[in-house]
Simulated scan of single mutants.
Amino acid sequence: MLGSYAMYSSVFEKTRITISKDSILHVGEFFRLAIPSAVMGCLKWWSCELLILLSGLLPNPKLETSVLSICLTISTLHFTLSYGFGAAASTRVSNELGAGNPQAARVAVQAAVFLSVTEAIIVSTTLFCCRYVLGSAFSSETQVADYVAVMTPLICLSVFMDSLQAVLSGVARGSGWQHLGAYVNLGAFYLVGLPVAMVLGFPVHLRGKGLWIGIVVGSAVQSTLLGCITCFTNWTKQVHNSIFFNKNLI
């Protein structure tokens, strides 16, 4: 539907493009951005899926896997909202950098972070207040619902971290830092998050709770590193880098 709209709508009459040899020749330039962007997202979600697999090795794997699957479902459902803020931040920041407006790019980042924090507080507070009935939306088993109630404070922390990292990841994509974001995600989740999860889940015997604490720790490290990169960015320099990249692309 979107493709048809772009092809036939008069709104795109002056900007509509056709497939040409130049577009094929410059595919490599887009792969240089697209592959690290894909890796950024995949590293995060693969680590979450690995937690579900690891929960099958715990005592009472049926209960642990059920509860962690519910936690991941809630987190994924919320992330669709956070990802929207991140996509908007990515588009706005990249447009402002391309237009040579460093101050506007900085303001766009600040606005996106403010909105994500506000949204995270609202969602986390709602989930926490509904923690005793939250599990019942997914399972009629009392044991599962009670376990989800215990896990809800950790889900709230995860929601908060996800809101921040979604926006900061969007800023990274819009600024062309995809490779940095991929390294950050690799270190945060595979050098910190998953090892902490395995230690807390198995030797410390916190079971599913320990596994999810590990992923929250990984998200916190990810958000902190991305936040530091964003805070110490010289936006004027980023404008020059963006203009240089666009000239090479053209």
Rank of each mutant, 00 (worst) to 15 (best):
residue 195 P to A: 06
residue 243 I to L: 15
residue 198 M to V: 15
residue 162 D to C: 15
residue 224 T to R: 04
residue 159 V to N: 14
residue 234 N to F: 05
residue 213 I to K: 03
residue 204 V to Y: 10
residue 201 G to C: 02
residue 203 P to D: 05
residue 244 F to M: 15
residue 201 G to A: 09
residue 217 V to D: 00
residue 161 M to A: 15
residue 213 I to V: 12
residue 154 L to H: 11
residue 171 V to G: 13
residue 172 A to E: 12
residue 212 W to D: 03
residue 163 S to N: 14
residue 199 V to M: 12
residue 227 G to L: 05
residue 249 L to C: 11
residue 152 T to W: 08
residue 227 G to A: 05
residue 234 N to H: 07
residue 205 H to A: 11
residue 173 R to Q: 10
residue 233 T to I: 03
residue 217 V to L: 02
residue 194 L to Y: 01
residue 245 F to W: 13
residue 183 Y to Q: 15
residue 150 V to D: 13
residue 172 A to S: 11
residue 207 R to P: 04
residue 214 G to R: 00
residue 173 R to K: 12
residue 191 L to C: 06
residue 229 I to A: 11
residue 154 L to I: 13
residue 216 V to Q: 04
residue 185 N to I: 01
residue 178 Q to P: 04
residue 219 S to K: 04
residue 196 V to E: 03
residue 228 C to A: 13
residue 218 G to W: 00
residue 236 T to R: 14
residue 225 L to K: 00
residue 189 F to P: 01
residue 216 V to P: 02
residue 153 P to V: 14
residue 166 A to D: 03
residue 241 N to H: 11
residue 249 L to G: 08
residue 214 G to T: 03
residue 172 A to G: 13
residue 222 Q to S: 04
residue 197 A to K: 08
residue 173 R to I: 09
residue 198 M to L: 09
residue 169 S to E: 14
residue 248 N to Y: 12
residue 219 S to A: 14
residue 234 N to D: 13
residue 236 T to F: 12
residue 225 L to V: 11
residue 164 L to V: 10
residue 213 I to S: 08
